[in-house]
Design a protein around this nucleic acid. Structure first.
Lengths: 147, 147
DNA sequence: CCCATGTCAGTATTACTGACATTG
DNA sequence: CCAATGTCAGTAGTACTGACATGG
């Protein structure tokens, strides 16, 4: 109950930032040879997991605004990795899907990323890694519940 | 040994990003009324913990380049929160320090940030929070060791 | 009317690389 | 000569806000 909690509080932001910074840098280095940025890779993963997502939906899942996601998406379309219909019969949302080239690019990029994630988790036991993910998720939910 | 590890690997990047995104957003909202950005606040904290750091040293501790830190620092100097000597007797490094106004601004901002960090850690026991920080640090070190 | 979406426009901040002079 | 620092310049990519039209 003493100052121990204060210390924890002061460090959680720092450790999170440090971890994300290291991961981001490592991912960026790994993706560069593939001509992808980290947000672009994230977008490809989202579309692979669930095709036909709209820009707005992709934005929510990547934690950015529609406008930012639109820029990322445009880059991927220009590169021929993502396709979107010019118009749709119903509604405004134009669902995006991976092109064959996009699927191939994601496949290659994913291999590089998996190596990084494996290295990162290597020092932890499987149980401990699982608990880490749960706790991270708990933190996030606590923050988002404050809105 | 089965596909369980694959699953963990696939999720660690996502959970880290999600947590950082939520924290960043919350901090940004909390700091805006104080006229500070997240990197600016981080810089003030670093200078409070250890005054007279050079731009390059601040950059290393904030995980950015000298050039980026210089921009952040210039904003803080313009706002009158940080002071740097025009020239130094010895060497090139110009140590930065908090001005009285900077100390006051940091003090106010820190209160807002501590609330956020407290909310974030509230769902975890002290022991579990401590373990989380240790594990995060371990992950980061594993990544950085790869360079 | 309301809400979500897509999109245009403008801007800010952070962040990077490259280059160069300076200091020890 | 070399390493670290500060700094100028240019650029990229992400991200934001504001605004407006459209579709259900």
């Amino acid at each position: 109950m003493a100052g121990g909690q204060e210390e924890l509080h002061r460090r959680v932001g720092y450790e999170l930032k440090r971890a994300q910074s290291a991961l981001n840098q490592a991912m960026d280095r790994a993706l560069r040879p593939h001509g992808l940025t980290v947000p672009q890779y994230a977008c490809l993963e989202l579309l692979d997991q669930q095709p036909d997502l709209s820009t707005a939906e992709l934005a929510r899942r990547a934690f950015v605004t529609r406008q930012s996601m639109n820029v990322v998406l445009r880059g991927l379309i220009t590169a021929g990795l993502v396709q979107r219909p010019e118009s749709v019969e119903h509604g405004r949302a134009r669902p995006a899907t991976l092109s064959p080239a996009g699927t191939r690019a994601l496949s290659r990029a994913r291999r590089a990323i998996l190596v990084i994630e494996k290295v990162m988790l290597a020092p932890l036991s499987e149980q401990r890694a699982a608990r880490l993910l749960i706790d991270l998720s708990t933190l996030t939910d606590a923050l988002r519940a404050e809105d």
